[in-house]
Amino acid sequence: MMFTAGLTAREIADRCKQNIATVHLHLRNREKYDPDFFAKHVAALEARGPQRITTKWRRRVKEAQDFYKAHGCLPGRAGDPADYSLAEWIAEQRRLLERNELPRAKIVLLESLPDWSINAQTQEREAQWRNKLALLVDFVVSEQRMPRYRTYATEEEHVLGVWLHNQHQRRTENRLELWKLEALNKAISGWRRCT
């Protein structure tokens, strides 16, 4: 019944905790009684589509879960080849999610991995942005003025002035993310008036 529902022999073996050779033997015997047995399987397998949950895919999720249990984090690209391979697999799942190409069933199974859907590079860029905002607030508090990017007194002021100018440009071009706009408005109420 599982085979005609589209499950592969490997998936059946894994689910039933049987040797794959035993499953193949059973399937060959079953074909003797139902000549359309393999045709039904092929049709059901094709209906599952290219993004179906395969045994190999489930195994990768299990590897990621085991890695997280052992290390308290997801694998990074630095390290041994197995860790790198697993990190790349997780990154591919993340890319599929961002393109809305990851089936809901896979998303549900991946939710057992904390922060799997968060892009580490995006997190790092956002942390750097928050750090610049904190430096800007410190500058405004200590100097009682906004940093300048043209007639600056120090290199620190120049860096902050350029950063603030870029935020202005992104805002006027509607490219500044809403959370960043809100954070700037909350941190420094008059930042829009200064260029």
Rank of each mutant, 00 (worst) to 15 (best):
73 C>Q: 14
66 D>P: 03
62 K>H: 07
64 A>R: 11
104 R>Q: 05
7 L>S: 05
78 A>M: 08
168 H>F: 05
56 K>Q: 08
69 K>N: 07
11 E>T: 10
1 M>G: 07
18 Q>L: 13
127 A>L: 03
76 G>W: 01
47 A>D: 05
177 E>F: 00
50 P>F: 10
60 R>C: 01
25 L>P: 06
41 H>C: 00
28 R>M: 09
173 E>C: 06
119 N>Y: 03
171 R>Q: 08
139 F>V: 09
152 Y>M: 04
39 A>Y: 14
169 Q>N: 08
166 N>M: 14
24 H>R: 12
148 R>T: 09
72 G>Y: 06
183 A>K: 13
154 T>K: 03
191 W>L: 07
135 L>D: 11
130 R>A: 14
25 L>R: 15
168 H>Y: 10
107 I>E: 03
79 G>W: 15
63 E>S: 14
115 D>Q: 07
9 A>Y: 04
154 T>P: 00
91 A>M: 13
12 I>M: 15
81 P>M: 09
106 K>Y: 02
19 N>G: 07
177 E>Y: 13
179 W>M: 10
135 L>T: 14
70 A>R: 06
62 K>N: 07
100 N>C: 04
163 W>I: 09
136 L>F: 08
171 R>D: 09
181 L>T: 14
73 C>V: 13
104 R>V: 12
178 L>S: 08
126 E>D: 11
160 L>E: 05
67 F>I: 04
21 A>N: 07
194 C>P: 05
168 H>R: 12
141 V>I: 12
62 K>F: 12
110 L>D: 08
29 N>C: 11
147 P>C: 14
131 N>G: 15
119 N>F: 00
66 D>E: 09
150 R>A: 10
96 L>N: 01
41 H>N: 01
54 T>F: 00
165 H>T: 02
162 V>L: 02
56 K>P: 09
17 K>V: 02
169 Q>W: 12
7 L>I: 04
31 E>M: 11
182 E>T: 11
118 I>T: 07
3 F>W: 15
7 L>E: 10
3 F>H: 15
15 R>T: 15
91 A>Y: 00
188 I>V: 12
32 K>V: 06
157 E>F: 14
143 E>Y: 05
84 Y>W: 14
95 R>K: 12
138 D>H: 00
36 D>L: 15
55 T>A: 04
160 L>N: 05
38 F>C: 15
81 P>C: 04
98 E>A: 13
124 E>C: 09
13 A>L: 05
38 F>G: 03
166 N>R: 13
173 E>H: 11
190 G>S: 15
120 A>M: 01
138 D>F: 04
69 K>P: 04
170 R>H: 13
1 M>L: 07
37 F>H: 01
63 E>Q: 10
7 L>A: 12
